[in-house]
Nucleic acid binder design. Structure first.
Lengths: 116, 116
DNA sequence: TGCCATAGTATACAAAAGGATACCTAGAGG
DNA sequence: CCTCTAGGTATCCTTTTGTATACTATGGCA
């Protein structure tokens, strides 16, 4: 039947504590070096940044360009294929915005914490 | 500016090993009892089913209707608000399908495992 | 009296994800 | 020859998620 739900496949590439914010920044700036990402995302460790970038690279969402220099220079950018994510990310962002408003309506504005 | 990325908010309500398949089933069947969900989702434990359902309920995606009987009867259904998720879920499903094809093209069909 | 059913809780545990910290490389500048 | 730099690894530890298993409540039925 092939009607299997593939929502999880889409989820997979976005899940991870830092992937959305990494993508957001690369989308915004076009191209970013590793150290620029580190600056833009306070609190992220090199290890986390590396693993999340590698996962996105594996999925062909971002491109990793190494300049053979010392000290090293590595630039990350969205692949052409990765740009196809834009509509989906925008839908999710829109839905997220309105959902925050909805939760406010239900539980009140003063509920900053998630009772998840 | 309020241009903050709210993709994570959308992500939040879908993350959890079982949420997509739970939603999928309730969407398909309209209304399902706890035990019916258990049957439809082999391997899920009562505890996981309970916690995932409670999280979805907190977000007003599903409705929990308790019949005061013995033995207990509890029915779960999508709320009207929750139905607003449909377009997003469909976009994710579509993207997921084409992404699987894309990965196949890159890494070959015989790569069932994720090198995530 | 004892057993069945449903929709859970409680407890203990295993696995996965994430975090902190130290270390590595090799050339440029002092 | 010491130190700085950028972009990482390696190792160990903590937190979060998920799993397994046993237990509970209540009324109807034999």
């Amino acid at each position: 039947m092939s009607h299997e739900c593939k929502v999880e496949t889409a989820l997979d590439i976005l899940v991870g504590k830092w992937k959305p914010v990494i993508l957001f920044n690369i989308f915004q700036h076009g191209t970013l070096r590793f150290s620029e990402l580190q600056r833009l995302i306070p609190n992220i460790t090199k290890k986390m940044l590396t693993t999340q970038l590698r996962e996105l690279e594996y999925h062909d969402i971002i491109n990793r360009k190494v300049y053979p220099q010392v000290p090293p220079k590595v630039e990350y950018s969205i692949t052409d294929y990765g740009k196809g994510l834009t509509p989906l990310l925008e839908s999710m962002h829109e839905w997220g915005l309105s959902h925050i408003a909805h939760l406010d309506k239900i539980y009140g504005e003063n509920n900053t914490e998630k009772s998840n």
